[in-house]
Simulated scan of single mutants.
Amino acid sequence: MSEAIRLQALSAFLKSQRSRLSPESVGLPTGGRRRTPGLRREEVAQLADVSTTWYTWLEQGRSIQVSHSVLDSIASALRLTVDERKYLFSLAMEHYSTLPVPEPETFRLPPSLQKIMQELRYCPTLISDRRCFIVGWNEAATQIFMNFEQIPFEHRNIISLLFDRKELRRLAVNWEDLVSGFLSIFRGYFGRYVDDEWYNLFLDDMMNRHPDFQPLWKQSSVNSAPDVWIEFRHSKAGKMLFDLTSLQVQGDSDLRCSIYTPAPETATERKLMQLLERSNVF
């Protein structure tokens, strides 16, 4: 990622976080009518105990020196979460990561992870890499979503599939919630691997091909492990309710496990069992 793009991303993030806070939420007087929602720049500077000019330059995306302590003060002023703080520091202090992306031709899931997916037979499970490409799945995921084996790796990106495939848009009743969950994960990767030009090329491609992508991307938060409740309308099983939990897999490959757990006290698990039985899996 170029210096200009990194600073632009930092600027957009600071503005979006500032707009989400009200003076009342941080203990400041309202100060009369406001033309735009959120805090003013001078109010953030006041809360962070920095000069308004310096904070303005930072939010404008100028190339200025920043320190850990000052960024920590800004993060506190903006009420950032742990994941949002990491994102801020990654963009502002250029802590680039050089962790390589697994090559699809040679990459193999660890046997332990394959075993875990098999044991989660009634929980559709996907394994993805740091670019959100699907590198593993169980049979339950195939029954609910699609046969990923038939999709070439270069087209097997979770985010692009959610926008490209009409059957996935029809499947998820609260499709935007599902997309927002994965975008919050993707934004965390985007900040962590700011030296990887692939992310910027991917975002440009998505914005050019899907007009509804840009507003969702701009509104997305930063969350490494969002919990999302999803309602599916499956073509064969009908209404199905899942809790989506995203887990970071420990290790050098930076993999993520997305588990769709059937909602308790619903018929979802029974319906999933019937789908698997019809496919002669068990």
Rank of each mutant, 00 (worst) to 15 (best):
Q8L: 08
A9H: 08
Q17K: 15
Q17I: 00
Q17L: 09
S19G: 05
S19R: 10
R20D: 06
L21V: 09
G27L: 11
T30Y: 09
R35W: 15
T36H: 14
L39I: 04
L39E: 03
L39Y: 03
R40W: 05
E42I: 07
L47M: 06
A48M: 01
A48L: 00
S51T: 06
T52P: 06
E59H: 06
E59I: 00
Q60N: 04
R62K: 15
S63T: 00
I64Q: 06
S67C: 01
V70F: 07
D72R: 05
S76T: 04
S76H: 12
R79L: 11
V82M: 12
E84A: 08
K86D: 14
Y87T: 01
Y87E: 05
A92I: 03
M93A: 04
M93I: 03
E94K: 15
L99N: 02
P102V: 01
R108Q: 12
P110L: 09
P111R: 04
L113D: 08
K115Q: 15
K115V: 10
Q118G: 13
E119G: 08
Y122C: 07
Y122V: 03
D129M: 05
R131Y: 03
I134G: 01
V135F: 07
N138H: 11
A140N: 03
A141T: 02
F145G: 00
Q150I: 06
R156Q: 11
N157W: 03
N157S: 06
N157L: 10
I159D: 01
K166I: 12
R169I: 14
R169C: 06
R170F: 11
L171V: 08
V173Y: 04
S180T: 10
R187L: 02
F190P: 06
F190D: 12
F190A: 08
G191Q: 01
G191L: 01
V194P: 04
D195R: 15
E197Q: 11
N200S: 10
L203K: 14
D205M: 12
R209H: 06
S221K: 10
S221R: 12
A225I: 00
I230L: 05
E231Q: 14
E231F: 12
R233S: 09
S235K: 13
K236A: 13
K236E: 15
A237D: 07
K239D: 11
S246Q: 14
L247G: 00
D252Y: 07
C257Q: 10
C257I: 14
S258R: 06
T261M: 15
P262G: 07
P262Q: 09
A263R: 15
E265H: 15
T266M: 13
E269F: 14
M273C: 11
Q274I: 05
Q274G: 01
L275F: 11
L276Y: 05
N280C: 02
